[in-house]
Design a protein around this nucleic acid. Structure first.
Lengths: 332, 332
DNA sequence: CTGTTAGCGCCTTCAT
DNA sequence: ATGAAGGCGCTAACAG
């Protein structure tokens, strides 16, 4: 039960191997009739090209690499979904690696990808260090950063407008009459955290509201982080009337804390999340949140990556920023 | 900036290409000294073997395919995480495809995978039809079904004990004094739905409780499905005091419906979910649910798949069933 | 329009 | 212990 090769087809059709190649690859210089015959036979024999042979010759693989920080995080799986879908449409396969937000893993993932001979790479970089990204810059492999970027590095990236998203969220809270708005933000080494803090400050400034240090809490990633930071904040002297969270996860933790303390949402406390995860609208108090176009983000990144692959010469950095949408629900 | 090949190493070391090959592949018949030198040079030149050339010769790729029904579903992304992690440890890369629970997509995904020349395939089959699985059985590609299986087909699979999981959940509700326990189950064509219904019935039977047709609701997949089926059920004459749900998603919908109707959980209504998704413990009423060892499921499937690959001759179907765990929280 | 030839990089005989 | 030669399947010259 060996694989069918072009040679088998050639033999059966009584032509040479590369006439078969011409037919199969839609090349010129071939008689329409013979072409039809060959295609017929190929189909009948259920011929599948050997990708290794193809790859060996062309050093193109029709395979893209995707490195994500955590497949189980709905944000990244949303990205992945968009990428996979578009890749399929474009005839590309994708190889996936998960770094668990760990820089060591990122190093080895990038190494593996370089060895894989993929045509291009999409990566949501762990952001503690930019070493691997700089290594990628020195390699010939085209790559696109996904959802996060490095300020100092001139790379291609596709991200969302975090400044704008945070601005909208904060402004909405201000419009609702809140003045003491605490932000429970993500780790400051992640670009989206930094940008959202900027958006938050901008909105506060624009409305003449002071931002005290105590109103900025950081390093919240998990639900538990949100819970603990919120509790700590409620125990302090100045209690916020509104909290803007780094993610819906974090908001979930905040809601839990509020419940335990006996604060009504949105009566005593307004809460805004980020991401519009599937559960946001189904909570006891449906959550106001900033929706990220996850799937489009993935699609756009794939598209960008293909442009890079097909562009012979180096081109200017493609830096795409997608808009977010504030989804207003009952929590504010 | 061409890739370094064995020839480059050979030249630099002043030996022949295949002495290099011997050194690199840890073969006998080579002088320790030359071997060391060669490895040194390879390292220095940052040599990476060309996978296509290797694949072309060996027809082994160190790549596995994974076909999941929906990457964005936490259950599947949990599987994927486990698979990816173990694969990496074993030196395999994985190619991922998403079928969106659509049979047409599954057909093309399987075709693609067959063309990819992967060494093995893990698949969570769409369950409307088993045609693609039968096609796989006729192919030489080793494959393992993941989380779902077909009763009629003698394939390798790795699943969880759905009968047992449902039994535990139902029994727990019975022990809490409930008699009118409604099950909001998934689509009956999915094996896990069928098995869970069996577990539910078993538990009811064992405790002498009657199961009326009206107590069995099906085809719930999304949060919305759970919401609507629950509403319909509450509007009927016989109101359940407990609901056992196909997933935590579905349970979320049920909770939403209960809230709107003014039923207190667990006072008026006990709710059990399935999966132990990350949000289950953070709800206003933390959810009792059946925990599935998602990551292990993936790891086990990978392990099984590697056994198949390394086993020369056909072996008896490996059918693995992992245990689940009932996690009791405030909703019951 | 079609066939012949060479070679992508590697590994496996076989000979030395 | 090492080298030379052939071929995996395909495609891109170049001939005819």
């Amino acid at each position: 039960m060996d694989r069918v090769t072009m040679e088998d087809i050639a033999e059966k059709a009584g032509v040479s191997i590369n006439t078969v190649s011409r037919a199969l690859n839609d090349k010129p210089d071939i008689n329409d009739q013979t072409k039809k015959e060959i295609l017929g036979i190929a189909d009948e024999l259920n011929y599948q090209p050997n990708r290794f042979a193809q790859g060996l010759r062309s050093s193109k693989t029709s395979t893209l690499g995707v490195i994500v920080a955590d497949i189980q995080n709905p944000f990244f799986s949303g990205l992945l979904k968009g990428i996979e879908k578009s890749a399929k449409e474009q005839g590309y396969s994708i190889i996936v690696q998960d770094t668990d937000e760990n820089y060591e893993n990122e190093i080895s993932a990038v190494r593996t990808m370089l060895a894989e001979q993929i045509d291009g790479l999409l990566i949501t970089p762990v952001q503690n260090e930019s070493g691997t990204i700089e290594e990628l810059q020195r390699s010939p492999l085209p790559f696109v950063l996904l959802g996060r970027y490095f300020e100092g590095l001139d790379t291609h990236y596709v991200v969302t407008d975090d400044v704008g998203g945070a601005y909208k969220a904060t402004e909405h809270l201000i419009n609702k009459g809140h003045r003491d708005i605490t932000i429970i933000n993500g780790p400051p080494h992640i670009s989206s955290s930094r940008e959202r803090l900027i958006g938050y400050r901008k909105a506060m400034d624009a409305n003449g509201l002071p931002v005290k240090d105590s109103m900025i809490l950081e390093d919240a990633v998990t639900l538990r982080d949100g819970y603990e930071l919120a509790k700590a904040r409620f125990n302090s002297a100045e209690k916020p009337t509104a909290i803007f969270c780094y993610s819906d996860f974090v908001a979930l933790g905040v809601l839990q804390a509020a419940r335990e303390i006996g604060l009504a949402v949105p009566g005593d406390l307004a809460v805004v999340g980020y991401d519009d995860s599937f559960f946001a609208k189904a909570l006891e108090v449906p959550l106001t949140t900033v929706r990220i176009p996850k799937n489009q983000l993935g699609e756009k990144a794939l598209e960008t990556s293909l442009e890079l692959i097909n562009q012979e010469d180096k081109i200017d950095p493609k830096q795409v920023k997608l808009e977010t949408e504030l989804v207003i629900r009952a929590s504010t």
